[in-house]
Computed example of a mutant assay.
Amino acid sequence: MYGALLGDLIGSPWEFNRIKHEQFELFSPACGYTDDSIMTAAVADALLHDTDPASAMRAWAQRYKPQRGGYGAIFWVWLNNPDDEPYGSAGNGGAMRVSPAAMLGTTLEQVLQLATQVTVVTHDDPIGLNAALATAHAIWLARQQASPAQIRDALEQCYGYDLSRPYEQVQRECRHSELALPSVPEALTCALLSTSFEDCMRKVVALGGDSDTQCAIAGPVAEMLWGIPADYLAELRARVPAAMLEVIDGLYVGGGLRTG
């Protein structure tokens, strides 16, 4: 989804230069796509063409190198060993790449089935899988025009997340973590407290956490809630490879695009 790729771009300068304020340039020369965008495109490719998600991830990793950062060490080993089984990850990587499942599923049941299919190839730990399902669920509900309060209630009931903390508390308590807990509930909280796509991005970066991945998680929810400004989409198309965008464009066929 565009919101995931934009979140990745916007958050990328701040992953290792963490800030606790919202006064930053959204699209600076330091912005670049990371493994989050590459793997989101891989998942979209697999689901659009009904192919094996693990094979798609490995093919896309060979095709593109992240402009910022790299692949996690354990994930990189998995990518380079085609016979490797899932490695029990409880990280946030499943959640950051799951948004295509929420776009392509026609029912919540199908969304969660697709999300499971693309997640368990690596993140078969219940915490990691739960985070991906919660993210896909949130995006789906926002697509159905559920309110932030309705989404919050559903996620708290289904996944046991506490999404009711005020932003100031979440920001104060946030520390950089690539684990699904606490990083995914933090990102979803920002999306549900936001008033626009830009506001969501600024809130996530100002957490001072795993900014690119958390923005990639929150971005699709904010996109479905508020839409994306046309000039943001122009920035995305100027900064991300055309082949990657072509795959992501396929998620929107017949579904339209809401612009903010």
Rank of each mutant, 00 (worst) to 15 (best):
M1K: 04
M1L: 04
M1Q: 03
A4M: 01
D8K: 05
L9H: 03
S12H: 03
W14A: 00
W14P: 05
E25S: 03
S28L: 00
P29D: 00
C31M: 02
G32E: 01
T34E: 00
T34L: 06
D36N: 07
D36K: 03
T40E: 02
A42C: 05
A46K: 02
L47F: 11
H49T: 06
A56P: 07
A56V: 00
A61Q: 06
Q62H: 10
Q62A: 09
Q62V: 00
R63C: 01
P66V: 00
Q67H: 12
R68E: 05
G69R: 02
Y71P: 10
I74G: 00
V77S: 11
V77M: 04
L79G: 04
N80K: 06
P86I: 02
G88W: 14
G93H: 08
G94L: 10
G94W: 10
M96E: 00
R97D: 08
R97M: 12
G105W: 08
Q110K: 15
V111Y: 10
V111A: 06
L114K: 12
L114M: 13
V121F: 12
H123K: 13
D124F: 12
D124Q: 10
L129V: 09
A132M: 09
A134D: 07
H137C: 14
A138M: 11
I139M: 09
L141S: 03
A142D: 05
R143V: 07
Q144C: 13
Q144D: 06
Q145P: 03
Q145R: 15
Q150E: 15
R152G: 07
A154I: 05
A154H: 08
A154Q: 15
E156N: 10
E156T: 12
G160L: 09
Y161P: 12
Y161L: 12
D162L: 06
L163I: 06
S164M: 04
R165W: 14
P166I: 07
E168T: 11
E173A: 08
E173C: 06
H176T: 03
H176Q: 09
S177W: 00
S177L: 04
L181C: 06
P185S: 08
P185T: 04
A187G: 07
A191F: 08
S194I: 06
S196G: 07
D199Q: 05
D199I: 00
M201P: 07
K203M: 15
V204L: 07
V205P: 12
A206C: 11
L207K: 09
D210A: 00
S211C: 06
T213P: 11
T213R: 07
A218S: 11
A218K: 15
G219P: 09
G219S: 10
P220N: 03
V221P: 14
A222H: 10
A222S: 13
M224N: 10
L225K: 14
W226S: 09
W226H: 15
G227V: 03
G227M: 09
P229N: 12
P229Q: 14
D231M: 05
A238F: 13
R239V: 10
V240Q: 11
A243F: 00
L245H: 13
E246V: 02
V253L: 13
V253S: 07
G254H: 13
G255H: 13
G256V: 01
